[in-house]
Design a protein around this nucleic acid. Structure first.
Lengths: 236, 236
DNA sequence: CGCTCAATTGAGACCTCTCAAGACACGTGG
DNA sequence: CCACGTGTCTTGAGAGGTCTCAATTGAGCG
């Protein structure tokens, strides 16, 4: 019934196949993976999963941008992570076999591939490398969190915002001559979350950066000069 | 040469055996584990490993208290985590097969069990459950980091300090009648790191908590009333 | 046009940071 | 035992930053 031979890998045509957590796996597992595999399109603002709901599998962003937010009892929320194409989301609750402690919501029109929980577990059991790769994603996430904690303790807010904008520019910016330009994918509130201040303060930080001549802002349109190549200090 | 039969599990007598990442493993792996196993005592202030050094294995705290700190180029440092008995440290660099990005230093006289890298890898390869458990530790660490980020964005410093002291009291406090009392295992600087303020601000926060009557402080000796049983709101 | 939501601006209270100086505990050596 | 360091902790003062509450502006949309 199952042809273990010529079933193509469901992620085979994905641009992020090389780094996929579902690769390599035994040819026998490919049919299991395919069985649990589905692709979904999300409009901007649409939720991939809601906080508090049961985990239904492991999700991989293939296009667009997903925001992971923790919703608080008082109605506010905190933006915890931006998931770009190639990123895996939902693995925290998958590994814990627990409900989602954050919501995942598309910031831009996005495409997400899902491997259903049951099949994901079966593939994982037959292919230890899958768990190895997932653990690698966990470690990356730990690294990211630590960087965020360290920069919060180390840098003043203005510098943190500047660094954040430069990072966003790397992903979303288009270079024209000597300037970079992007449409911010985030609201001011979300930006404020990412550096840990109130939205009003965010506005004022923007103004200060503008006054410093670091960038030109108009709504979500941002321009800045191409940064000089920063010379990394090589630690022996 | 190896007796696969009656070699005892090296963690068998440990109080944290039940939650150990090295359990259960195949009886054949026990001798490998034993081979890579060593126990080390650390004085207060002594380093388990230094930042920037190569990973030499996976460490498990069996007694005392270990501080994980990130050291910055400017000479300052940030306290990232307190590792209590039962906690595993060094697994981040172990999984990445990379050098340590933090230092681990004993805050109190401590005992740490080490499984050397080479043998840890061999045991892990033969026992997928080990990686499963390690992934679980990663997920816990992610949860901790997220809580820290959320509370930094949500609560004012005074409340964060209060929450931190209550948490420390749970681990280090002794109840006498209606009061809890502990010797702080941390310097003011380390406490300041944990909530993300300067040491001077830490002092002033302490003073405000004292003025509020929340606690009695004398150096590192802290007393507070036993908190009322907080009634958890059950979210349906 | 009028609604709504996002973003900005204003004002004042409050807090935190920095730099500096003092208080305190602890250990060492005279 | 005392003097003297040393490191930790506290306190002070002023500048600067952030927060909150409130009002205003701006942009998108029926």
């Amino acid at each position: 019934m199952t042809n273990t031979h010529d079933t193509p890998h469901p992620c085979g045509k994905c641009a992020f196949y090389a780094g996929s957590i579902w690769q390599p796996i035994s040819s026998g597992s490919i049919s299991v993976l395919t069985q649990g595999f589905s692709r979904k399109e999300l409009d901007a603002g649409q939720a991939l999963y809601e906080q508090g709901t049961e985990n239904r599998g492991v999700f991989c962003v293939s296009k667009g941008l997903i925001a992971l937010r923790a919703l608080h009892p008082d109605g506010k929320s905190t933006l915890l992570k931006l998931a770009y194409p190639g990123d895996v989301v939902g693995y925290r609750s998958f590994l814990e076999n627990d409900c989602h402690k954050t919501e995942a919501r598309a910031l831009q029109p996005s495409k997400v591939c899902t491997v259903a929980q049951r099949d994901a577990n079966r593939v994982m059991q037959g292919n230890p490398l899958v768990l190895t790769k997932l653990a690698g994603r966990c470690v990356s996430e730990i690294n990211n969190s630590r960087e965020r904690i360290i920069s919060a303790a180390t840098l003043p807010n203005k510098k943190r915002l500047s660094a954040l904008l430069h990072r966003l520019m790397e992903s979303h910016g288009v270079r024209t001559g000597n300037t970079l330009r992007m449409q911010l994918p985030l609201s001011r509130s979300d930006l404020a979350d990412l550096i840990g201040v109130q939205p009003e303060t965010m506005s004022r930080l923007f103004k200060r950066l503008r006054d410093d001549g670091e960038l030109v802002i108009s709504g979500r349109d941002i321009q800045m000069p191409v940064p000089l190549p920063t010379r990394q200090v090589v630690s022996q």
